[in-house]
Amino acid sequence: MKLESTGCTDPGLIRAYNQDSYYIDPAGRFFIVADGMGGHAGGEEASRIATEEIRSYLDKNWQSPESSLEILEQALFTANQAIVKDQQNHPERADMGTTAVVIMIGPDELPVCGHVGDSRLYRLRESQLEQITEDHTWIARAIKIGDITAEEAREHPFRHVLSKCLGREDLHQIDIQPVDLQLGDRLLLCSDGLTEELIDQKILEYINKAPNLEQAAHTLIEAAKEEGGHDNITVVLVSVEA
């Protein structure tokens, strides 16, 4: 499976700092996006710790006999523990946390995705954009049970309230799932700074119109800024090539 990939991040138009981080493995084995919270220093540190811990764990355990599902789950739990430890060592950052979304593409198994929070993984296949992850938010739960519509959710005051994130001692479950990939598929990992500003249909249109992945990533960033750019914006795009 040959992969092409690109990524970029931007603080947006409102915030003076960027609490997002991302990582693209040079060998194309895994891709990470994290969106920190808890103030300037706290959010930046939480997303940095998460990204580095996940990267380090996956790199060290790539040849482990465990399944990709087990390896990725443990990588995210390891990141959570590292953030909690940092909180204990630095009480001024006690409320920090971060989302994380990771796609891991092993040589012999189906790709797997792990996520915590509301950073998302999408798959674009034959002009259809599908959200693979399910947001860990109060509002996503309300939409699922029919208490609120997706349109109403975009303006709801509780739309940013997370039900789960890295950096919590009571984090006991992480969503891990296999992801089917076919030739021609494209993957989008992003922070909510993108999806807060652009509906899925607009994201699909911008990706499809761009001449290449790099231009698509930059176009998405700029489009989100044109719609307000209220939050940090991070985009990682991966294409499955022949």
Rank of each mutant, 00 (worst) to 15 (best):
F158I: 03
T98K: 08
T78I: 02
E109K: 12
E130F: 06
H90A: 07
C8V: 13
Q81I: 00
Y22F: 15
E197M: 15
G117V: 02
R186N: 07
L110W: 10
A224F: 09
E197K: 09
A75V: 13
I83D: 06
A224Q: 04
I145H: 06
I174Y: 02
I199E: 14
K209V: 00
K209P: 00
H156K: 00
A224K: 07
A79H: 08
S127W: 01
F31L: 02
R154D: 01
T195V: 10
V235P: 02
E130K: 12
I203E: 04
S56D: 15
I54P: 06
I32R: 04
R125Q: 10
D10P: 12
S191Q: 12
S47A: 14
R125I: 05
D180Y: 00
H136K: 06
S119G: 07
T219R: 01
V116F: 05
H230C: 02
G39V: 06
A34G: 03
V235T: 03
L194G: 11
W138C: 01
T6Q: 08
D175L: 08
H160I: 03
L121E: 11
I174S: 06
E70T: 14
I103D: 05
I233C: 12
N80S: 12
G184M: 11
S5Y: 04
L171G: 12
C113H: 04
L110G: 07
L181H: 01
I14T: 14
K144Y: 00
W62Y: 13
W138T: 08
E196S: 11
S5D: 02
G28D: 08
G28N: 09
R141M: 00
I83H: 04
P211S: 09
I233T: 13
D135W: 00
Q81N: 11
E205M: 04
H40N: 13
P157Y: 09
I199T: 03
P11H: 11
G146W: 08
E151V: 01
P211A: 13
A140W: 01
N89K: 12
L189V: 13
G167M: 06
E4I: 01
A34Q: 07
R141S: 14
G12D: 10
Q215P: 03
D25N: 15
F77E: 11
I148P: 02
L198G: 05
G43L: 06
T78D: 08
A153L: 05
A50G: 07
A100L: 06
I71D: 10
D175M: 09
N89H: 15
A27I: 10
K164I: 02
F30K: 12
V236D: 04
E205G: 01
Q215D: 06
H90F: 03
K225W: 01
L188Y: 05
A210E: 07
K209Y: 00
I199W: 08
R168G: 04
Q63I: 04
E109A: 15
V101T: 13
V112Y: 14
W138D: 00
S191R: 04
L124E: 06
K2E: 14
T234M: 09
E66Y: 03
A150G: 00
P107H: 08
Q182S: 05
K225D: 00
D147W: 05
H160C: 04
V33W: 12
E226Q: 15
E151P: 00
R141T: 07
E130G: 05
R186C: 10
N61R: 09
